[in-house]
């Protein structure tokens, strides 16, 4: 029972450490958005922001939602879901690259 209580204490400590990490990462993502040269470089800014958000999201999923401890079928169902989610996100980007040069290019601001 004592060992059990100790394990529980460690669990609580883990939650608080993840909490701290999430706060720090929030400060980081807000902070870097005010760096002028990074804001000017959109691709890099998007990559950094999504990377930080990805790490934060993973921390929440792995530790708060205990996804690390789930070894059952739900893990694979969710993995499939995430795969579809990423496919959905990439879909607009892929289709927009299919625009063929023409006089309407100026309308979409491409081809400069």
């Amino acid at each position: 029972m004592a060992a059990n209580a100790e394990a529980h204490q460690a669990e609580l400590k883990k939650y608080l450490m993840v909490f701290g990490a999430l706060l720090v990462l929030t400060a980081v993502t807000v902070g870097v958005s005010y760096i002028p040269w990074l804001a000017a470089n959109h691709v890099l800014a998007i990559a950094v922001a999504l990377l930080v958000a990805g790490v934060k999201g993973s921390l929440v999923a792995c530790y708060f939602m205990h996804l690390l401890d789930e070894r059952g079928m739900i893990f694979w169902i969710l993995a499939l879901c995430v795969l579809f989610f990423i496919t959905l996100l990439l879909l607009p980007v892929v289709t927009s690259s299919e625009v063929v040069a023409g006089h309407a290019d100026k309308l979409y601001g491409v081809g400069k």
């Binding site: 993502t29 807000v30 958005s33 959109h42 800014a45 998007i46 922001a49 999504l50 930080v52 958000a53 934060k56 999201g57 929440v60 999923a61």
Partner: peptide, 13 residues
Amino acid sequence: LVWIFLFPVLYLL
């Protein structure tokens, strides 16, 4: 978790 993604996507990017 959804908000963690919404925040940078809408406000910072």
